[in-house]
Design a protein around this nucleic acid. Structure first.
Lengths: 223, 223
DNA sequence: AGATGGATTTAGACCAGGCTAATTATTCTC
DNA sequence: GAGAATAATTAGCCTGGTCTAAATCCATCT
């Protein structure tokens, strides 16, 4: 299967949207995710369906087939290993590493990834705390971290996993010094979709909407 | 300047052909180098000329402008640093490293290359013995190695630089165990465009056409 | 110097991936 | 259950990079 980077990006988008909403994905969602118009999406879905990479029912939605998911998992593996390399050896910061990996993931060979994984010591998670699929593209079990939304006010935790695909979220967290390794105290978990936390490095309260806090994985600090 | 990998490949081809023949480059030469038809080359030359990257005179030939050359030098820098990384850290062999680097060179950012160069210790040559342009894209001085064609029968030398862009040449040399670091004795330098050598590892005589031998750089072994 | 052959360009077509405008499905609301 | 609103698709066009077939340039050779 010889797939263009563009087609691969559509598969990735479908994968992430399926994951986010737990259901089949609609045309508009993809068009927003990739910043293209919906007719463009429709025609790409036709073509991906023909190639057996998605199941697409016009007007109803689209899902990845097993073959489509396999391609995405290889990309995820490429991406997370590249991020690990970029941060550990080239001193990229966690908030800048994504774009570089997002380009390169489409262009490295399987051979490269195999060798890079060995060089890095076959890591199971990347520096954002996200799991790395193994060479057979099996995704490791669910992450052992607890979402920030599950903690109580006063809890003292270490951030282990941060959402970083959305540039706005990434920028916000980075600006407020919240990243992998950050120690913080949960201040308030409000019913109006808000969590406030105090990073121990700054002592300034930071507000987080629930959809962000839910994706921040943390470990309780054992005093 | 936002250039497609395809356009970059045309610039590279022109660069290498100018270098090889020391004159402006003809359409057919490019079409053979890149394995596309000549009308395709003509239309790309029009487009590169419009963008100020080449000087193209229909029916006469084409040369790189300074801006075109700058782009190529950045690609050469990317390529040679990538090759260095792939061989030194990921254990690629000198004969397999080219293709991976040839794809990636188009997709790494300048930031990546800067950081990779630092990680590698700002090397001045790659593992094939080819010079790496510095951060300001200045190519280091001519290589200190002497072409195999300049030696006399009986001379004992170490190979330091091997041509590796042409897959057939690469395959031939690799098959006959001639690569960077190979010790060999020059057997015969024939006037009919042939040099024969005996690698010390095999004791079998290997014939090399002059156009290949001329591109193999070697250093005399001081006994 | 003119004819001929090889190199080159022009003409016209195709595909991938994008767009806008118009049409058609679906869903929501009363 | 019928219209209105929204979502999705179809129609038609564009650009970059490719092709084949046809026309044209140019160098050479008698």
């Amino acid at each position: 299967m010889d797939l263009s980077p563009v087609a691969e990006d559509y598969l990735k988008a479908i994968y992430h949207l399926e994951d986010e909403y737990g259901r089949s994905v609609r045309t508009t969602e993809i068009s927003e995710e990739l910043d293209v118009t919906s007719p463009t999406v429709t025609s790409m879905l036709d073509s991906l369906d023909e190639r057996g990479l998605v199941d697409y029912t016009p007007y109803q939605g689209v899902e990845l087939t097993d073959r489509g998911e396999e391609i995405v998992l290889q990309l995820v593996r490429n991406h997370r290993l590249l991020e690990t390399f970029l941060m550990e050896y080239l001193d990229y910061s966690w908030s800048t590493v994504h774009d570089e990996a997002d380009r390169l993931e489409h262009h490295v060979s399987d051979e490269f990834t195999r060798r890079l994984a060995r060089f890095l010591g076959e890591p199971a998670t990347d520096p954002h705390g996200d799991p790395i699929p193994d060479a057979d593209l099996r995704m490791p079990d669910e992450s052992p971290y607890t979402p920030l939304t599950e903690y109580e006010p006063g809890d003292n935790v270490t951030v282990e996993q941060v959402p970083h695909r959305d540039p706005d979220v990434r920028e916000y967290l980075s600006q407020h010094r919240i990243g992998p390794g950050t120690r913080l105290v949960v201040d308030e978990v409000s019913p109006i979709d808000l969590v406030t936390v105090v990073p121990s490095s700054t002592d300034t309260s930071v507000a987080l909407p629930t959809h962000v806090a839910r994706r921040i994985g943390a470990r309780a600090v054992t005093k």
